[in-house]
Design a binder for these strands. Structure first.
Lengths: 117, 117
DNA sequence: GCTATATTCAACACATCGGTTGATCAAGGA
DNA sequence: TCCTTGATCAACCGATGTGTTGAATATAGC
């Protein structure tokens, strides 16, 4: 899954809050309703409801219908899109580091050779 | 590298801005100074300087000294800490999905057997 | 229909964020 | 020493985010 800039904005902003991260952690173990998600936190249900809306707008969760409940479900593909974005730049950096290292090693060996000549 | 809640707050918030993400992308190809990082953007150097401070406070970059320049360097381990956090919950969710799927498949086969009995 | 429960909407307060301008600091070069 | 360049600090402004309270909506169950 590839995402645009706005999607990344919303997703990373959604993860930049400990309450929402805890909800993600909870939802990884199975679906949960607003009330269930609210339980661990000392904040109002309305605040929790809005956290959920932020996660949904980011595409990190979806919601189904079960009578008057609206259970939340984690969307693993949305999480994967984020790690892909991050990994692209991490891997490029690590490749660059390795090239630099090899270059330095080569230069050192060359220097040794010059000295023992 | 494992990080605490504040670190995750700062890191994800740092990534929740297109300017800072573009800086990350640029830095993956090599170190750069404030002026170099500022070049692509229609904002003041001061604003760029503060974006850099946000990235540094999050631990996503470090800075060295080269005369009056302060080149920025990406920290791949910090990026890796973020993907690790995300992957933990994505993988748990995917495992759960697979278990559910297997369960459903088992139930369907059971049902078929009952019908042909 | 009535009431209880689950959830959301609306309006507000307060803090933080991302930008600006103007001043300041630090290092290099003539 | 003086001037230039790279970078930062400080104060301010408008927008956004996160919480609150109180009212509204929707579904379940009697």
């Amino acid at each position: 899954m590839t995402v645009d800039d706005d999607q990344l904005d919303r997703s990373f902003a959604a993860l930049a809050d400990p309450v929402r991260r805890a909800m993600i952690a909870r939802l990884s173990r199975g679906p949960a309703t607003v009330n269930e998600l609210a339980e661990p936190f000392p904040i109002t249900k309305q605040a929790v409801s809005r956290h959920i809306q932020v996660l949904e707008a980011a595409g990190l969760i979806t919601r189904s219908r079960d009578g008057q409940r609206r259970p939340c479900h984690l969307v693993p593909a949305a999480l994967e899109a984020l790690t892909s974005w991050i990994d692209e730049y991490r891997l490029e950096t690590e490749r660059r580091f390795r090239r630099m290292e090899a270059l330095l090693r080569g230069a050192r060996e060359q220097e040794q050779k010059e000295q023992t000549k």
